[in-house]
Simulated scan of single mutants.
Amino acid sequence: MSQKFFYHRRTLAARLTKLITQVAVGSAAASGVFLTAPRRTGKSTFAREDLRPALEEAGAIVLYADLWKDPTTEPGAVIVETVREAIGRDEKLMSRLAIAPGLEAVSVGRLKFNVNKIGIGKEIGLTKAFEALSDEVKKLIVLIIDETQQAITTDEGVAALFALKAARDELNSSKHYGLRIVCIGSNQNKLAMLRNSSDEAFFGAPMVQLPLLDKDFVDWYCKWLDLPNNLDPSDVFQLFQESGYRPEIISAAADGIRLDPTDDPKAILVRFAELVRAQVAALNANLKMVIHSLTPIQSAVIRVMGAKGESFAPYESSTMELYAKATESTGVAPSEPIIEVEDVQLALMALLEKKLVWKTSRGVYTIEEQIVVDMLRDDGLLESLA
């Protein structure tokens, strides 16, 4: 695709590249770097189109694993497959691994190596695989993991993160050429679970809030928009802010104009604004519909979860009392049976299926997106539940 169809943030990419590759005294970047921004605001495009090229220009070998590319695939398997693909592209490296002690892979006339031997609990673990890759390329390796928080939703994903920690510690020793792990996510609270505790794989790694796309992006966007009449970037920027800084929403509005063109410049702006606001309203309306369709106990659980935030503990006695309080406020008679732990478990399962709630492999629950908490608060449903 032509470069004009991507808005590049090269200054930001250069600054992050320096943070990732040039570890200074007092920096924790060697432990990993965490980048976060709200969903659908361009962080993955930035990672692929700006950060990755900048890291490569700085001399690093860059691997990229998107844990949301296929939601049906185990997150740990995605990480392992990314390493396998990197090694599979290098015949010399595969030959080296094929003759590694304890591995037999000889065929007529040549050596063969099956990359499936690489993995957690396999003949070649991730540390050995990264060691071989590092020693072969003799360059810093950077692994970018998009939507990293998904890794802690499964035991295999957690195991992969700890395997990466071991590989990182080994490759950052003086024997090799270095390994940096860049973790990207759309929910800062979820990402923080990977770095806030001393028993997590990336304890102490720095968290960087990516800046949202700004007026410069909108100026560039309007320049290449190719509508019958030009839109004023100042007007579009205001609408872009209303859309939550999500490029997809204003792009869909532009498509709506193309399907229903008009020669009146003022009419184009009015119609564009209507389309943007209609999409935002539709997104919120769909989410509200899901929230208002919850059963009383499901509603009580998500409301208490939203009110308690990071301190939410689903089965503590004080939390159980709050469920009862929240249920009564929905109009359910106090004479209803007392809420039991099994009721909460079933409610949490239902909320997970509706994608309103997210759960780690350790049983920690949090609300999927901040917008859900904001809606509950705006409707007065979190009052007196903290």
Rank of each mutant, 00 (worst) to 15 (best):
M1E: 14
K4P: 03
R9K: 12
R10N: 09
L12A: 04
A13S: 10
R15A: 15
L16A: 07
L19W: 05
A28W: 03
A30M: 09
A30L: 12
S31M: 13
G32R: 01
V33G: 01
T36W: 02
A37F: 03
R39K: 13
A47I: 05
R48T: 08
R48W: 06
L51Q: 01
R52N: 02
R52L: 11
L55I: 13
E57M: 11
A65G: 05
D66H: 03
D70S: 10
T73G: 00
P75Q: 10
P75S: 14
G76I: 07
A77D: 12
E85F: 08
G102E: 14
G109P: 03
K112P: 05
K112Q: 13
F113K: 01
F113L: 06
F113Q: 01
N114E: 10
N116L: 08
I120K: 04
A129S: 06
L133F: 05
E136P: 01
K138D: 02
V142S: 03
L143P: 00
L143K: 01
Q150N: 15
T154H: 12
D155A: 13
A163K: 02
L164E: 12
A167D: 07
A167F: 03
D169I: 12
L171G: 03
Y177F: 15
G178H: 12
L179R: 00
V182G: 01
C183N: 05
C183Q: 04
M193R: 15
R195F: 09
S198F: 12
D199H: 10
D199R: 11
P206D: 07
P206F: 06
P206K: 02
Q209R: 15
Q209C: 13
Q209P: 13
L210I: 02
L212V: 07
K215F: 13
W220P: 00
C222F: 10
K223Q: 10
K223F: 09
K223G: 01
N229L: 09
N230S: 13
D232G: 05
S234R: 11
D235N: 08
L239W: 00
L239G: 00
Q241S: 11
Y245R: 09
R246M: 11
P247V: 05
I249A: 00
A254M: 06
A254T: 10
G256W: 04
G256K: 08
I257P: 00
L259P: 00
P261S: 10
K266Q: 14
A267H: 06
A267V: 09
A267M: 10
V270H: 07
V270D: 10
A273G: 06
V276G: 00
Q298W: 02
Q298A: 09
Q298F: 04
A300I: 05
V304S: 01
M305W: 02
G306I: 08
A307E: 00
K308H: 15
G309K: 08
G309E: 14
E310V: 15
P314C: 08
L322Y: 03
Y323C: 04
A326Q: 02
T327C: 13
G331R: 01
A333W: 00
S335V: 00
I339F: 00
D343H: 12
V344D: 06
L346A: 15
L348K: 02
M349V: 13
L356W: 05
V357L: 09
V357K: 05
G363C: 04
Y365V: 03
E368Q: 13
I371F: 08
D379G: 11
D379I: 04
G380Q: 13
